[in-house]
Amino acid sequence: MFEARLLKSGQLKKILEAIKELLKEATFDCSDSGIQLQAMDDAHVSLVSMCLKSTGFDKFRCDRNLSMGINLESMVKIMKCCSNDDIMTIKAQDNADTLTIMFETKNQEKMSDYEMKLMNLDQEHLGIPETNYSCIIKMPSSEFARICRDLSQFGDSLVIACTKEGVKFSTSGDIGSANVKLSQTSTFDKEEEGVTIEMTQAVCLTFACRYLNLFCKATPLSTQVILSMSGDVPLVVEYQIEELGCIRYYLAPKIEE
């Protein structure tokens, strides 16, 4: 028996918004520690890794490990039927081929339930090596989204260059070029409003704007984003979900032909 109760269904709504354009379907692996998801997009350029801790739920019960293949488009349809502050419960029997999703309003005057068919998905789990990243940039997630959106008007690729002084985002295309430089913030009231850089070695890598913009769909989940980079390895874009877990996106760099 699997059962998880979340006090704010809006959190799961935002999570689905953050992955539905990269993944059509995904396997949710449930265990007593929580719910995990790891899946690549069809082009094998990016990977979504999500972890929701059992302790982040109001109630969480998972007697046996369970892998649920979910069509994300279907789940988005169901999530459209609730309000952000509805309480939601997801439930499945062991070896079930359906998942039940229930919503209740806070005053319990409206209860609804939806049953969704589960799928058998071929799972391809990738081993992600432990990496000591050369640069770790923490910045406001809204600022990162703004830069990705602004610069993708000018070109398909974004160069991210990180040094001790700061981080520079650059692009160029038919109409010209664009650069945005961010320096480490010297004073800030709240940690999430600042830009901080931990660096052991300068790194400069090129990435596809299209994917970065898709990752930015996670912006409503967190005020801060963490970018981790090392030479010639995939970029990690991480959004912490308060008390519940995190979403990490991995993006393979563009390389010289």
């Binding site: 990016s46 789990h125 990738l126 081993g127 992600i128 596809a208 393979a252 010289e256 032909e257």
Partner: peptide, 14 residues
């Protein structure tokens, strides 16, 4: 020019 690399050349299937 630059070309897009694949994630599977960095991470191996388990």
């Amino acid at each position: 020019g630059m070309k897009q690399s694949s994630l599977t050349s960095f991470f191996k299937t388990k």
